[in-house]
Design a protein around this nucleic acid. Structure first.
Lengths: 201, 201
DNA sequence: TATGTTATAAACCAATCGGTATAGAAATGG
DNA sequence: CCATTTCTATACCGATTGGTTTATAACATA
């Protein structure tokens, strides 16, 4: 058994609470006071368990990747038909972005606004920018598999198409953050997929 | 002639400087210290000339609408062929978003991240959300004209298509903010327009 | 030159920022 | 029981936040 006084709070639960605050407010606008209040943890306990604000943000960010984004990625990879896979992935993201039980929009897209601003630690900035690029690569890998499968023509511009899809995804997050509803965004996904490569050309 | 000591700074120039700071940092992350430094104006002069932080933000925002966005809107309305008009508008936006002489991305999209966060005044939030909706309406008006012109089929889902275009525009701003280059974003615009309604269906 | 008016610069304000130091509470090992 | 270890609560730290006061400088009018 561990010695000393045991924690009075659940680390996972507290990190979830921090995730929600950072999700809604981004890095800079989230204050330690808001975080401690939402987490139900005193400041010294917070610093002892998670380190400083940037460390906490990174930990919350990693949890977001695992707990939220992994689900959409899984949808993208599980569906065998590539066009349908992309559609299911985007719709899954739309559902999450507009879920009234969660903060609006996307943790990453909300966070990217802080990039380039003084007061945003380099580690935070790098994590955000890397994961924006990660979305492009996620789509790219799936599209490449679609080309291998012969579901997409060999001439497909995988890089261009994946950049386009990542852009649509980011745009959906902005619209969701601005309060646009689920149904509208689902129809936007439908429109976006009309750009899908056709073999009748 | 006006009585009293004359201003030692140019109001327009100072407002331009404030615009750049808010553009880069958003509302919350921009500090009065940064603003006064960039504007070359002391704090009392700033408050006398522009009011408090929220008022200054709104004024900078209006200037952004006039000085930056009006250009793209003009491109959208001037070009007679509707598809080409949308393309020119998006490319104009991409050029501005990636202009190294300006802050990255879009003032509005960078600002929307602050919405829903405590510490963002309602007036700021409303202005931002209204202008996000404004983009949809801007495209909607142009598409409606395209339907009148018979350049678009009467069956065109103007609302859906304009929501899609506004989403792409927002996505482009996020990508630009994340450092994606001009050429990539130009190709994204090309991909996005492949979703344009076809009359061969 | 004297007066009224407006703008400036510097110092100042309470409040809040991220982050800590200190003291005591709650556990285990002896 | 005591000692040790770990966590928690409160109070506190210097720095910075948005915003203002005070004193003075620079103009037009008279």
């Amino acid at each position: 058994m561990e010695r000393g006084r045991p924690r009075a709070f659940d680390v996972d639960q507290a990190l979830d609470a921090a995730l929600r605050v950072f999700w809604r407010d981004g890095f800079q606008a989230a204050t330690m006071t808001e975080l401690t209040a939402a987490m139900g943890v005193s400041k010294p306990s917070l610093y002892a368990a998670f380190g400083d604000k940037a460390s906490l943000y990174i930990k919350a960010f990693e949890r977001y990747l695992e707990r939220e984004l992994a689900e959409h990625r899984r949808a993208l990879e599980a569906e065998p038909e590539v066009r349908r896979a992309v559609e299911v992935c985007l719709l899954s993201a739309v559902r999450a972005m507009t879920d009234p039980a969660k903060p609006r929009g996307c943790f990453i897209v909300n966070g990217v606004a802080d990039c380039g601003s003084p007061g945003t630690p380099p580690a935070v900035e790098e994590a955000l920018l890397r994961s924006i690029q990660g979305a492009v690569e996620m789509f790219g890998a799936r599209l490449a598999r679609g080309v291998e499968d012969r579901q997409l023509p060999a001439s497909t511009d995988v890089g261009g198409l994946s950049a386009y899809l990542a852009t649509v995804l980011a745009g959906l997050a902005v619209q969701a953050q601005a309060g646009v509803g689920c149904e509208v965004l689902r129809s936007v996904v439908g429109s976006a997929l009309l750009a899908w490569p056709r073999n009748d050309a």
